[in-house]
Design a protein around this nucleic acid. Structure first.
Lengths: 157, 157
DNA sequence: GCTGACGTACTCGGATAACGTTTGTCCGAGTCCGATAGG
DNA sequence: CCTATCGGACTCGGACAAACGTTATCCGAGTACGTCAGC
């Protein structure tokens, strides 16, 4: 039960990208966060495929959010990078073994899968309730008012 | 974001073990579910280490629940097999890079980690609310009243 | 002076290796039951 | 007939490989800007 480490990077990138329409190159974002440039590029590609960011090629190109930060939930970023598949995958154990239940006798999903599905939905709902704008506001409140503006200035230097 | 497949096996084992104090060998449980005996043994060992089941050695030995099924939550089984560590691990990205925040300026946890932690708690709370007895009752209701008694009879044949 | 085309440098994107974790397997230590021999 | 001892077989437990997924990396395709020649 482990989430991809790229999720954290992707979220941080979305936060610093919020509020500025200027495209920022992946290499710049990587240098800012002091992480592997090539691997961060992979995460940004995933965000691009999901339609959360728009990529611009050529000089002065880079990545920018496609929507206002207030309209992007944390869940979307997580699902874009880590995948939208539920953590639990039912293998229909009931239908195996000497006393296997007939497939038609099995209500879908089975009790175990239902519990896991409910927990998964609770988890996703919790992430859906928070937006990138909320995260940015939190940074402003806890670390300092000028933190994000300074970051944006550095990124678009 | 993927849960260990052994969790499903462990839960099914707990369900069929509920209600009978008789120890059941791991090999028998594996045959019943038609899964790898050696690997299932590994999961049962994890449950044993967590104190959810008690192992008895020698002839007529095996595994049995230590507590009534109504007092064992699904969460306990999941944490015993899949580990209790949260899925998200904060690497303190804020403290890296050219504009790194000073460690003392960072409130713990940071906004991102806080959101992830809340989602994790929601997930766990959802799993904590269901017990093995609930799962057993669901089987009785959906598949058939005699399903579990027949399974127990087969296991202790 | 203006316009068009060209070259260049910079960007992303997908295909390609290395590592770690999970999955799967094996054999050894420990223990209980049954058989057996003695009282 | 009862009891203590011994043998055997069955059990779990931890240590040992293989496979998958994640992590990390590279090079090629595409595009926008700046330059330069022509009108």
């Amino acid at each position: 039960m482990k989430m991809s480490g790229g999720v954290e990077w992707g979220l941080h990138c979305c936060v610093v990208l919020s509020g500025s329409g200027e495209p920022v190159p992946a290499a710049r974002l990587a240098e800012f966060h002091d992480v592997s440039a090539t691997y961060l590029a992979k995460q940004l590609q995933a965000l691009s495929r999901a339609g959360l960011v728009r990529s611009t090629q050529g000089q002065a190109g880079g990545y920018a959010l496609t929507r206002p930060a207030a309209e992007i939930s944390v869940l979307e970023v997580v699902e874009a990078i880590d995948g939208a598949d539920p953590a639990f995958r039912c293998t229909e154990v009931r239908q195996r073994g000497p006393l296997a239940a007939a497939p038609e006798a099995c209500t879908r999903p089975c009790g175990i899968a239902a519990v896991m599905g409910a927990a998964d939905r609770a988890w996703r709902e919790s992430l859906r309730a928070v937006t990138i704008a909320d995260l940015a506001a939190d940074v402003t409140r806890t670390v300092g008012v000028d933190t994000l503006p300074r970051a944006r200035a550095w990124l678009t230097r």
